[in-house]
Amino acid sequence: MPRILVIEDDEVTAREIVTELAAHGMVADWIATGRAGLEHALAGGYDLITLDRMLPGMSGIDVITALRERRVETPVLMISALSEVDERVRGLRAGGDDYLTKPFAPDEMAARVEVLLRRHQPQAENRLRVADLELDLVRHVAWRDGQPLSLLPTEYRLLEFLMRNSGQVLSRTMIFEHVWGFHFDPGTNVIDVHIGRLRRKIDVAGLPALIHTVRGSGYRLAPAD
């Protein structure tokens, strides 16, 4: 069971985070100040830290800088009311692994935590497998039911992201951020179109569908129920 350290000075937000993480089967410890948070983080034993950008005394940036200086590489999800582009860049440069702007949908926060946890799991194999869907991470080739799939580069990256986080609901924003690397609201249903294309190649007729649409949230790649 993953252990999460929640460093957050606002009690309501902290409770929201802890509850949501618990609902996703994680254990969360809440610390209200940057200094105490840093001590806990340095003590170790956590799989991930959610870190508020604005904390009294020691700021979130200070905490993460101190952590990275001490070679503590625990993944950090920065959470901030500051949405500005520069703030985001600053947070990620200081060593944050992802950046979430307040207010956030709790399920999106949990999804980001899970994606970060997966990303930091040691990858033993060069292959990802979900049911009869296979992806060769070295040769950039995919198979469904033993048949090779011809994927465009973007489709390959999209599939890799979905497969690395299989079972996880991924919002359109997260997909856009991870696959295309941009952080704004693309607004239109462009992501849906890209998913649709990938779906037509993977979920061919006669085989159980692997890419599922989760209403109001996003997409999930998982073996058929």
């Binding site: 295309w180 693309p186 249903n189 462009v190 179109v193 890209h194 649709g196």
Partner: peptide, 12 residues
């Protein structure tokens, strides 16, 4: 990049 991103939508 913009073109690649929107080309599928335009095609649809």
């Amino acid at each position: 990049q913009v073109h690649d991103f929107y080309a599928p939508l335009a095609e649809d």
